[in-house]
């Protein structure tokens, strides 16, 4: 239970970073922390205490293997979600660089041409 609470705490930290910080790069870090928190949650879903990796080797008993191994599906989901967040992260960094090129600042309070 504690570990789920820690995971939730990480999520809230990311959200706080996203809302309270004004630096563009810090906002991107906040998004990354949010993603990691959700990924951690997904991994925790599949975990069981004393579980073995979900890889079947030669000579293993299939019956006991399926009882002992952790759930492999969340790990596949996490891999997909990591790839997606990698794409979003790269997109964000490149847009942030472009913004710096145009505005000469990373401060979001000064990047505010769009109003109303």
């Amino acid at each position: 239970m504690t570990i789920y609470l820690m995971c939730f705490f990480l999520f809230v930290m990311g959200l706080y970073c996203l809302i309270a910080k004004k630096h563009l790069i810090k906002k991107i870090i906040g998004i990354a922390i949010l993603d990691y928190a959700v990924n951690l949650f997904l991994i925790l879903i599949g975990y069981k205490s004393g579980g073995i990796p979900p890889v079947l080797f030669e000579g293993m008993n299939k019956q006991t293997f399926s009882q002992q191994s952790v759930d492999p599906l969340p790990q596949a989901l996490v891999l997909t979600s990591i790839v997606i967040s990698l794409g979003v992260l790269i997109m964000m960094v490149s847009i942030a660089l472009r913004l710096y090129e145009k505005y000469k600042t990373f401060d979001t309070s000064e990047i505010s041409r769009l109003r109303g």
Binding site: I90, V93, S94, L97, R98, Y100, E101
Partner: peptide, 9 residues
């Protein structure tokens, strides 16, 4: 590209 562009910026 990020290395090039980041240096440039």
């Amino acid at each position: 590209l990020l290395v090039f562009f980041g240096r440039f910026v």
